[in-house]
Computed example of a mutant assay.
Amino acid sequence: MALVARGDHAAFAQVYDAVCGPVLGLVRTVLRDPAQSEEVTQEVLVELWRTAARYRPSRGSAMTWVLTLAHRRAVDRVRSAQAAGERERRAALLARTPAYDQVVEQVEARLEREQVRRCLRGLTELQRQSVTLAYYQGLTYREVAELLAVPLGTVKTRLRDGLIRLRDCLGVGA
């Protein structure tokens, strides 16, 4: 392995001959697909050539190290295939998701508008005027106060009380 780490082609040929069969056998037991097994085996042997310098004899035999590389690579391939299958399954589910239903959306919006109108009718006249001017006509609190000829603090109080009653009537959480 030390010679392979230094780029010795002849040493790599010997290591290749010694580990190729066991690597292919291990990978095939994990993947079960002969074509994928051969591909992963080739990836492992290329990785062996590029990373031979990482081998540490004190941690185990070269065969154990290579088989560990092979097992990890095979498991990665299985996980990748499972993830791809899951992505395809989710995409298929999304494709079956019903399209945007414009009629339903219009009905729901109309019902919401009706509920808001009903709740607005439940406000006092002063609250309804303040809310309508501020939120439906876009006036500032100061402009509402000037238009209704009341102090700014009164407008703020009417708006706060009106919005609280609207919130309660619409069933919106605090």
Rank of each mutant, 00 (worst) to 15 (best):
residue 71 H to F: 07
residue 9 H to K: 11
residue 65 W to S: 07
residue 114 E to M: 12
residue 62 A to L: 15
residue 80 S to T: 12
residue 46 V to D: 10
residue 150 V to T: 09
residue 19 V to P: 11
residue 147 L to F: 09
residue 76 D to M: 05
residue 5 A to Y: 11
residue 22 P to M: 07
residue 146 E to A: 06
residue 27 V to K: 00
residue 77 R to C: 12
residue 84 A to R: 14
residue 78 V to I: 14
residue 89 R to W: 12
residue 16 Y to L: 08
residue 110 R to S: 08
residue 125 E to I: 09
residue 147 L to K: 13
residue 173 G to N: 11
residue 149 A to F: 11
residue 114 E to A: 13
residue 68 T to N: 13
residue 21 G to L: 05
residue 94 L to F: 05
residue 16 Y to E: 06
residue 128 R to G: 03
residue 17 D to H: 01
residue 72 R to V: 10
residue 129 Q to V: 02
residue 14 Q to E: 14
residue 40 V to Q: 13
residue 121 R to L: 12
residue 86 E to W: 03
residue 71 H to I: 04
residue 130 S to G: 11
residue 167 R to P: 06
residue 101 D to S: 03
residue 38 E to V: 02
residue 120 L to C: 08
residue 101 D to R: 00
residue 39 E to Y: 02
residue 147 L to Y: 04
residue 101 D to C: 02
residue 7 G to P: 05
residue 172 V to P: 03
residue 136 Y to E: 14
residue 60 G to E: 12
residue 14 Q to W: 04
residue 8 D to P: 03
residue 62 A to H: 08
residue 119 C to H: 05
residue 89 R to P: 06
residue 119 C to D: 08
residue 161 D to S: 10
residue 124 T to E: 13
residue 111 L to Q: 15
residue 42 Q to R: 14
residue 42 Q to K: 04
residue 68 T to W: 05
residue 111 L to M: 12
residue 164 I to P: 00
residue 24 L to M: 09
residue 143 E to H: 01
residue 127 Q to Y: 01
residue 16 Y to P: 01
residue 115 Q to A: 13
residue 154 T to Y: 02
residue 166 L to I: 11
residue 147 L to P: 03
residue 43 E to L: 08
residue 124 T to P: 02
residue 129 Q to C: 03
residue 81 A to F: 04
residue 106 Q to K: 15
residue 167 R to M: 14
residue 18 A to F: 06
residue 156 K to D: 05
residue 159 L to K: 04
